[in-house]
């Protein structure tokens, strides 16, 4: 039996796994750019076959990154409720005015049609691809690399006075404290449970009851976050951090052949997904 209190168990986004794979070794700038390009491709692609190819390729990436696929699949679990809600909304609310759209069911403004069924299936496929890709990105790239890569990619924006460094520092710190707060939350749940607290016992329409049940968690967590934040500011100041002042940079990246290959492959995949006219 697994414990009900292992919060960190199913969070695959943000958990870097140390491996020595080709994916891990990519230059983060190129990895991020490839990621962005693939996302655009997935967003545009609206055929079944294209999305299935995309799904297959994103699963294959787990293999390339030496990360068990099961770990990526478990990352889907927390997203299932969202997928269901969005799916239902699309199923009943999506409308398309085209001659070959068949309407199966209609009630007031609700209708289920062949187009809405298609869009639900496509969205589910897209959603899975996005979760898989983000999981691979964060499992194979340390958050430091992600933010450094992001900082470097965004650095042209500095010319228009966009605070690129502050921006990436905010992201780094936010990500850096995810596991810390997850552990904190886990401890808090355990501690309140041993005082007799129960979470999520009210039925779903008892919103007030369910919300007040969470107070013993939310309030202490908020206090802890505040205290940690204050500490962190002091520690950063003590290490001479002053927002906006000039800094030097420790990590410098040099792209090699693999990085350009990855970028080109990503562009190629987007072409395959978007421009080939698949029959369905």
């Amino acid at each position: 039996m697994s414990s009900p209190f292992e919060l960190t168990r199913n969070i695959t986004i943000g958990q870097y796994l140390v491996r020595n794979s080709i994916i891990h070794k990519l230059d983060p700038r190129f990895k991020l750019a490839s990621f962005a390009i693939l996302l655009v491709g997935i967003a545009i692609c609206d055929s079944y076959i294209g999305n299935l190819i995309g799904l297959f390729l994103s699963i294959y990436l787990f293999h390339l990154a030496s990360i068990p696929v099961s770990y990526g699949v478990s990352g889907l679990k927390p997203a299932i409720p969202f997928m269901i809600i969005i799916g239902l909304m699309q199923l009943f609310l999506y409308k398309e005015m085209s001659p070959d759209n068949v309407i199966y069911w209609q009630l007031g403004f609700l209708e289920v049609s062949s187009a809405s069924i298609k869009i639900v299936i496509i969205s589910v496929l897209r959603f899975m691809q996005i979760i898989f890709l983000s999981s691979i990105l964060t499992l194979s790239t340390s958050t430091t690399e992600i933010t450094r890569g992001l900082e470097r990619l965004l650095s042209p924006l500095q010319k228009v006075k966009f605070p690129v460094h502050a921006f990436s520092l905010i992201i780094t710190i936010a990500i850096r404290f995810v596991p810390t707060f997850a552990m904190e939350m886990e401890k808090m749940m355990k501690a309140q449970a041993s005082r007799g607290a129960e979470f999520g016992t009210g039925a779903w329409w008892q919103i007030i009851k369910r919300t007040t049940e969470m107070f013993p968690l939310i309030i202490p967590l908020f206090n802890v976050a505040l205290a940690r934040g204050e500490d962190l500011i002091l520690a950063m100041e003590a290490r001479c951090y002053t927002p906006g002042s000039s800094r030097t940079v420790y990590t410098q990246y040099k792209a090699n052949g693999n990085d350009y290959v990855a970028l080109l492959v990503s562009v190629g995949i987007v072409f395959v997904l978007v421009f080939i006219p698949y029959p369905w």
Binding site: K187, M188, K190, A191, R195, G196, P216, I219, P220, N223
Partner: peptide, 26 residues
């Protein structure tokens, strides 16, 4: 859980009520 009381490390973190008495009464 009534028979075994478990006090965690830094248990002061878990206080959430405004008043001392209320928190103990939880």
């Amino acid at each position: 859980r009534r028979q075994v009381g478990l006090v965690f490390q830094n248990p002061e973190d878990q206080l959430f009520e405004k008043l001392v008495g209320d928190d103990i009464a939880y």
